[in-house]
Amino acid sequence: MKKLSLALASAAVLLSVSPQAEAEVNPWQQCGIGAMIFPDNGAAAAISNIIWDLGTTAVTSATVSEETCKGASVATAMYINENYEQIETDLAIGEGEHLNAMLDMLAPADRAKAVAELRRSLQIEADLPVVKKAEALYLRAIAFAS
């Protein structure tokens, strides 16, 4: 029952975005960044790519292959996906470097208003996978920024 309600909540978020946002590439749906590169934990994905220290880890690419998945919106999505926990914390506090970086990527006309809107609509669900929460935040964020 709980899973069902979470799924419905997620769907509601996805359906509530503006037409402009819908027109954008959804990197989770179309580029598979959630499943292909970052299963559920951005940290784990980052580790697989970066533990060089004196240089001893395979250097792999975290970029997606399709040309359509290389734009700025996908870069924003990847950033949100990998840093969701910190962005969520910054949003709850109301400021922070991770939140600022996301706003720099989105470049909303009114940053304070965007933060207020995102705080108001922030869904803090411990049981929802990070990938899902990141996707929902991304879609809300680009909707507010557009």
Partner: peptide
Amino acid sequence: QPFYRHNLS
């Protein structure tokens, strides 16, 4: 890589 990945890792 973007620096945020190093910060995270």
